[in-house]
Design a protein around this nucleic acid. Structure first.
Length: 511
RNA sequence: GGCGGCGUAGCUCAGAGGCAGAGCAAGCGGCUCAUAAUCGCUGUGUCGGUGGUUCGAGUCCACCCGCCGCUACCA
């Protein structure tokens, strides 16, 4: 019985250099996973690398090593990025692992033997560049020539196995009719439906022209080509074909996250492949937009690909995660710029949350020896508890609809309200009057309590910063043990707690 | 060619029949606990264009312009 919230990223191609677009998907997946953990759910967050294929085989040859050695060398460059970004995946799959090769073989065999000839031998005919050793689609060509070598391509024929995607048109349409949430956002769903309605073509699933791949179980002269290898990782890790009990708890995946460029494979090929094997499709495929730099898609040739480290080194990992999630409406394309990142960092993090923590702890240190004073029971907290409750409600609602930017934004309504509240109540002034110590204390209690709740709410997005707020507040119970909604209920902060004012949470950045 | 999306304040964007909005940036004022911080006040914008429906149109309809996505086809 399914009991695990299962979220995936695509598996990345280790020959590529990681850029902020890849990281965007992985950060989003991590935030979603952490949010569900915060709610006390059992969560499984999967990522990995896609390690087969001709391009890797050729890169290895060029480097004078075998493909295995090559991918072993390249793959850590990806994990290193995830580590620096605080991506807490639960499993990391490499398609070269035996468990994956076994799962692919099982899936292929299941489809091959399903009695409907969904996999059949055929002739693949394509435009081939001898220099690239690659097939191109007509739309990839430039004036009929190879876009890389500028030389004429040849029409080549190769014996392949095909998957009978065309047979799944009606079943896919029916599936998406009954599960309108299964492709999101809406605009992407419409595209998928129009692709399916327009008729589907069978696609080739094997190659004999290179060998760095998983052999087909019934015809090992062929290696499996791309999609039956790559997409299958999602069920490999869930225990398909190896651990039925585990598979039952995990599958179907709750959400496959990806950029919109591989939507079709996830929303058309993949469910059809699973149907052919008698496996239920994932519950949701969620295609987010592109990160634009200077209004244009990042590109290698224009050198606009940005490595995450270039930003992490300057802004810090928490600011990095916050910026991309807050600045861009999840699902839409979004512009990255250094300027807007500095702006967000200073306005929201340094001046907003960071300064709020700083002023509250400074006042506690000045007037109460750093100890959290008791609330006074006369309503000094004003509407802060109500605002916190409202913020929590909106935060959860937005997360439920994958409106990540709005969910994060909701927390900042509380930051704003507490700053306002402090100006209204002037605790720095009240504290100077010996007769009004209790009042000053109660006001600071309320501000500190709001900060405690904020630490919980930002923890999926900025786990490091949340931990630092928690630590400076001096709370003994581990942040990692907090669960929503209880942890956001007003009054959780114990009077007497010894706060520890530390370094600025987010130092301002000049440019 | 077909289907779809977008075009709103300097910037990023929300609003989908009823007095043009938010955040940021900018200006002025307050406060001085705080990270030159924070709080308050300040927005006359051909809501891409034209025409229409309506008592009333960013909002609905038609056409047009400019971007973009998916898809088809020609070469």
């Amino acid at each position: 019985m399914k009991d695990t919230f299962y979220v995936t990223t695509p598996i990345y191609y280790p020959n590529d250099v990681p850029h902020i677009g890849h990281a965007y998907t992985s950060v989003a997946a991590d935030i979603i996973a952490r949010y569900h953990r915060l709610r006390g759910e059992r969560v499984f967050h999967l990522t990995g690398t896609d390690e087969h294929g001709l391009k890797l085989q050729r890169a290895a040859e060029a480097a004078g090593v075998d493909p295995r050695t090559w991918v072993d060398r390249m793959e850590p460059r990806w994990r290193e990025v995830w580590s620096r970004l605080d991506i807490a995946y639960d499993d990391y799959i490499r398609t070269t692992e035996p468990r994956h090769e076994a799962a692919v073989a099982q899936l292929l065999q299941a489809v091959y033997e399903n009695g409907r000839d969904d996999i059949y031998p055929g002739i693949y005919e394509g435009l081939y560049c001898v220099s690239c050793e690659l097939y191109y689609g007509e739309s990839d060509l430039e004036g009929g020539n190879c876009p890389i070598h500028g030389r004429p391509v040849e029409l080549l024929r190769e014996e392949n196995y095909f998957f009978r995607l065309s047979a799944y048109r009606d079943r896919l349409l029916e599936h998406y009719e009954h599960h309108p949430e299964a492709v999101q956002p809406e605009v992407r769903r419409n595209e998928v439906l129009s692709v399916i309605r327009g008729g589907l073509q069978d696609f080739s699933i094997s190659r004999t022209s290179f060998h760095w791949g998983i052999p087909l179980p019934w015809d090992p002269r062929h290696v499996c080509y791309v999609w039956f290898d790559a997409l299958t990782n999602y069920i490999t890790a869930a225990g398909y074909g190896s651990d039925p009990e585990r598979f039952g708890r995990m599958w179907p995946a709750d959400v496959h996250l990806m950029a919109k460029d591989i939507l079709r494979q996830h929303a058309v090929y993949w469910p059809a492949m699973l149907m052919a094997a008698g496996v239920e499709p994932a519950r949701q495929v969620w295609a987010h937009g592109y990160l634009l730099v200077g209004g244009e898609k990042m590109s290698k040739t224009k050198l606009t690909g940005i490595h995450p480290f270039e930003l992490i080194d300057h802004f810090g990992v928490d600011s990095y995660r916050y910026y991309f999630m807050r600045e861009i409406q999840f699902g839409q394309d979004g512009n990255f710029s250094w300027e807007s990142m500095v702006e967000r960092h200073n306005a929201d993090l340094a001046n907003g949350l960071g300064n709020l923590l700083s002023r509250v702890l400074a006042m506690l240190a000045a007037s109460f020896e750093g100890r959290v004073p008791p609330p006074d029971g006369t309503g000094a907290e004003g509407d802060l508890p109500a605002v916190a409750a409202d913020v929590l409600g909106r935060y959860e609602g937005h997360f439920g609809r994958m409106e990540l930017s709005s969910a994060v934004g909701a927390a900042w309504d509380l930051v704003g309200r507490v700053n306002q509240y402090l100006v209204e109540r002037e605790p720095w002034k009240v504290a100077r009057d010996p007769a009004r110590q209790e009042e000053a204390g109660a006001v600071l209690y309320a501000a500190a309590e709001a900060l405690r709740i904020l630490a919980v709410l930002i923890s999926p997005v900025m786990p490091g910063a949340a931990a630092r707020v928690w630590e400076q507040l001096g709370i003994a119970a581990p942040l990692g043990a907090q669960r929503l909604p209880e942890a956001a209920a007003w009054g959780g902060l114990a009077p007497g707690t010894v706060t520890r004012r530390g370094e600025a949470l987010f130092p301002r950045i000049d440019a």
